[in-house]
């Protein structure tokens, strides 16, 4: 019990962010027309590619003789970049078609 309380107060700031972001996330897309469901999902997909930052940190911290960390970290960077770049490009391609004519 003590540990849980300790954890909460040590990570207070982070927990605030979590709670506020839950509301922001719900609020921000609350009234999306169904036309945009697919592009929105794809855009959100690209945004969670922010996990790439974790991969970069892992990679950048890996010691030169720790091959497991180097290989897995490298793989993580590649996969994370795929998620980010692919996600944004696909979303852009979908939305390109919504452009106004004339």
């Amino acid at each position: 019990m003590d540990k849980i309380l300790e954890f909460i107060s040590a990570n207070q700031q982070m927990i605030y962010i979590v709670i506020l972001m839950i509301f922001v996330g719900i609020e921000v897309i609350g009234r999306v027309p169904s036309v945009l469901h697919t592009p929105l999902m794809s855009g959100a997909n690209a945004i969670h590619g922010v996990v790439i930052i974790g991969a970069i940190i892992v990679m950048g911290k890996a010691e030169a003789d720790n091959y497991l960390a180097l290989i897995l970290g490298f793989l993580a960077v590649v996969l994370g970049t795929l998620n980010v770049v692919g996600g944004f490009v696909v979303t852009d391609r979908m939305l390109e078609m919504f452009k106004k004519k004339k």
């Binding site: 990570n11 962010i17 922001v24 996330g25 921000v28 929105l40 945004i47 996990v51 974790g54």
Partner: peptide, 29 residues
């Protein structure tokens, strides 16, 4: 949500924000 755990791990606010934002918006979607 998995990305947000990464945010907790590195005390990294942008991972946390992005992750939770998508977690919440994705669930609603």
């Amino acid at each position: 949500v998995a990305a947000a755990f990464g945010g907790f791990l590195y005390n990294n606010k942008v991972m946390l924000t992005g992750g939770i934002l998508v977690g919440a918006a994705g669930t609603l979607l």
